[in-house]
Amino acid sequence: MRTSKLAEVSGYSVQQIRQLESLRVIPAATRLPNGYRCFSSLHLSALLAYRELASAVGPVLARDVMSKVQHLPLIESAALISGLGYSLEEERRQVVAAKTALTSIRKETETEIAVAERGSSARESMTITELSQALGVPPSTLRFWEKEGLVSPDRVEARSQTARVYRATAIRDARITAALRAGGYRIPEVVEAIGALHDLGDASRSLAALDERLEAVARRTLALFRAGSVLADLVDLGHR
């Protein structure tokens, strides 16, 4: 088919098709004796796959992947494609971990949540003794959590000694850790949950926002699957 026909059936403009061909996102068109481009159903599939892949991983990475899988060795092409699914699964796991952490402190009273997430006007920080008493764990447990990277108290000079001071974020992290540990979660799982909350930032404070993020990841994963069969065809074409 001619470029204009491919544009019509694919939804891309003629200029976009020429640009994607020059970037090697789609295979090079066959040239007719008169110099006109001639495209096949494979080119149409590649364009549609690129659209799905761009929805899954973003246009920049999608262009890079579409170009590379046609020219890399078979093993590297397959690894590149499988890595996309792995990255999406890691993102999903991060959001689930953050949701688990947030849910754990939502089980507490509203007053405790306010102290954990924002601090109260009366108590914006706590000493290790105060926090250990509030959580019902010994100070040695808090020191262990700090060593594992779960809680990060500030250090201040007091009476020629360095003392730990737990501010709002550290208090929240300690409460999350205590709740998850009480629920049977292992230290590596708690580390993942705390890290996810930090990485996701303010959005992690809303369970609704996390649910929306999970749905977005699910939709992107399905888009990746839809692009997958065409990517496999492109890899096969490059190794015939």
Rank of each mutant, 00 (worst) to 15 (best):
V156R: 15
L214Q: 12
I187Y: 08
I171N: 01
R155G: 02
A163P: 00
T177I: 05
A163C: 05
T169S: 10
E124R: 15
R123P: 00
A209G: 05
I187C: 06
I176Y: 01
A134K: 13
D154Y: 01
E148C: 11
A179K: 11
E192N: 10
F144L: 12
A196F: 11
K147Q: 14
Y185L: 12
E192K: 14
E124C: 00
E215T: 12
I194K: 03
A196D: 04
R213M: 15
T127I: 05
G184N: 04
A208S: 13
S120F: 02
M126I: 01
A193G: 06
D211C: 03
S125E: 11
E124P: 02
V151S: 05
V137R: 06
E157M: 09
T127S: 15
A182C: 04
G195Y: 07
A216F: 00
R205Y: 07
A216T: 13
E215Y: 09
S204G: 05
R213V: 02
I194E: 07
S204D: 09
R123G: 01
T169D: 11
G119P: 02
A158I: 09
V191L: 08
L142A: 05
L200E: 11
E148M: 15
A182E: 13
R172E: 10
S125H: 08
I171V: 15
R175N: 03
V165R: 14
E215K: 12
S120D: 03
G184R: 04
I128C: 05
D202L: 11
R159I: 08
A158H: 14
A179S: 14
R213D: 13
G201M: 07
A203V: 14
T141P: 00
I187E: 11
S125T: 12
P138C: 02
S206M: 09
A158Y: 12
G184L: 01
V137D: 02
A174S: 15
A196V: 09
D173Y: 07
G195Q: 09
G201Y: 09
R205I: 00
T177G: 07
A208E: 15
L142I: 02
E124Y: 06
P139Y: 05
A168N: 10
S132V: 02
S152L: 03
T141R: 14
E192L: 15
G201Q: 08
V151H: 11
L197I: 11
A174P: 12
V190T: 03
A208N: 11
R186F: 00
T177L: 06
A163V: 15
I171L: 04
D173L: 07
L135A: 06
R181P: 00
R172M: 10
L150C: 07
P139K: 07
V190Q: 07
E124A: 12
V156S: 05
P138T: 10
A178C: 13
I128K: 07
